[in-house]
Amino acid sequence: MTQPTPLNTEARMRPSPFYVIALALTLPLFMTACGPTELPAVAEASKPALTVSLATPTLQPVSNVISANGSVAAWQEAIIGPEINGLRVEEVLVQVGDRVRKGQPLARFARDTVENDRMLAEAALHEASAAAGEARADGQRARNLEDSGNLSAQRIQQLLTQEQTTQARLETARAQLALQKLRLSQTVLRAPDDGIVAARSATIGSVPAQGNEMFRLIRQGRLEWRAELAAQQLEQIRPGQKAMITSPGGSTWSGVVRLVAPTIDPSSRRGMVYVDIDSAKAGEEGFIPPGAYVSGELMTGIQRAMMVPQSAVVARDGFHLVFVVSKDMQVSALKVSVGRIFGDQQEVLSGLKGAERIVASGGAFLNNGDRVRLASSPANPDQH
């Protein structure tokens, strides 16, 4: 029987072509799934340091204020109307918004009827004056003949009584003439005080009744701001404190607290503060009209507040941050609570002690842990 020919050992160890192809296809997949067992370390590129300037919080005196809202009203109003009945308006001399002086004519009424009544009163006075003169003469004769017995006592008494009666009628006639002169002067409607005409209902040809409003006057042109405050805020307000009011047009007005209401509204639990508005701008552009609802601030005193540059405060993720620079020029973000803005300065209510070195500007480009360098030493970032 023929023996099988033994295969060459080298031929037996040579891989099959199909095995080589399969290995070439699966090796990349294996390396991707398992990952490299050892890769050479690559040095991460150094992030460049941001050049910044530093600032330190400072304590500055600022006004302590209370914000409030309220309406603007006239300090006092004067209602002006006719003092006599039955007169026709003949002329209207002023319009709404006019500034008037005390005693200035506002309107004129037809005076024919009143002038006629004055003439009748004057004639009645002349008549009474003549009758009184005759009665005085009769009374003097009666007194001279009283002791002679030529006149009875009754007649003497009648003459003396007639003298007194005619004298009284003379005084009545004088009063009637004075009344008609007064009515004649009332045919001209005059301003009772300096001020601004706020409303006008007078029309030519109308016959207004006595006391009906024809004009409404803001006395002396003075306006007041009636600020509404909570009970705890009212305790901080005193007469004489300064205020700043902003008009609907954006103009600012100064004022002074005149009065703090002694009571609080039981429904709203708020009280009223009456602030006199500076009337120097009355009639100018930006004038606050009575009835406007405006906002303002009441200055209750001076306090020292911690201030930082406004550019140092960064708003991020709903918080206000400042970046504090350490000795090795590394920054760390610090949350702060901020208050009002004064020019380019921002008030910090809490979060800082006052000795920190903070980034004055450029904080929006920084993150916690970044390194910075000073603007005054660009060659050496770590120098400080």
Rank of each mutant, 00 (worst) to 15 (best):
T165L: 09
R183L: 09
A202C: 07
G195D: 05
F215H: 02
K181P: 01
Q167L: 03
R219V: 15
F215T: 00
V197I: 15
N212W: 00
Q210E: 14
Q162R: 14
M214I: 01
E163I: 06
M214K: 09
E224A: 04
A175T: 09
S206G: 14
Q162S: 13
G221L: 12
A178T: 10
A202R: 02
T187K: 04
L182I: 02
L217Q: 00
R183P: 04
T187G: 06
T187D: 01
R190D: 02
R190P: 02
L179C: 06
L177F: 03
Q164D: 03
V197K: 07
S185G: 12
M214N: 05
T166R: 12
E171A: 15
R190Y: 11
A175V: 07
A168S: 13
A199H: 01
A175F: 12
I196H: 01
K181G: 07
L217S: 00
R183W: 13
R226W: 08
I218C: 05
K181D: 10
A173I: 07
T166E: 14
L170E: 14
L170A: 11
R183I: 04
Q220R: 06
I196W: 03
E213T: 07
Q220F: 11
T172M: 11
K181E: 13
A191K: 05
S206F: 08
R169A: 15
A173N: 09
V188C: 04
V207H: 03
A175D: 10
G195S: 13
G211I: 04
D193E: 09
A209M: 01
R190S: 07
I196M: 08
Q186V: 05
T203H: 08
D194F: 13
L217V: 01
Q210C: 04
N212D: 05
Q186K: 15
T172C: 00
Q220H: 10
P192H: 08
